[in-house]
């Protein structure tokens, strides 16, 4: 599924990464716990309600570069700067984690396990 379609499906805002919206995404992982993100061997799209600079830093370390921030959390300037340095995509939507995951799963995005 193209990122552009995900933006439409979730009525999301593109915080950064406009130039990558034609990329395809197959897998996603949802967690507010960065310790869990650090145990992943794969590099899925991350769906999270944790909205701080450590979210971005953790993704950088775990080589994840597409992040959906749920529950209408405010993405800060320092997050955007770090994301820009690492060529990441950050989308932000107002839906709950559950609804976001449900919509994406229904649209064919696969879990890791």
């Amino acid at each position: 599924m193209k990122l552009r379609e995900i933006v439409k499906l979730l009525d999301a805002k593109v915080c950064i990464g406009e130039g990558r919206l034609d990329e395809d995404v197959e897998h996603a992982f949802a967690s507010d716990l960065m310790s869990d993100v650090l145990t992943l061997k794969d590099t899925p799209m991350l769906i999270t309600g944790l909205c701080n600079v450590q979210t971005i830093r953790t993704c950088d370390m775990a080589t994840l570069d597409i992040i959906i921030i749920v529950r209408n959390k405010k993405v800060t300037e320092d997050m955007l700067e770090l994301a820009e340095d690492n060529d990441m995509v950050i989308l932000s939507c107002s839906y709950s984690m559950f609804k976001t995951c449900g919509l994406l799963y229904q649209a064919g995005i696969q879990p890791l396990f």
Binding site: M34, L38, T55
Partner: peptide, 15 residues
Amino acid sequence: DMGFGAGMGLPNMQK
């Protein structure tokens, strides 16, 4: 609150 502290740090280093 920062998304850590779940008792996974040292075991994950080991892995």
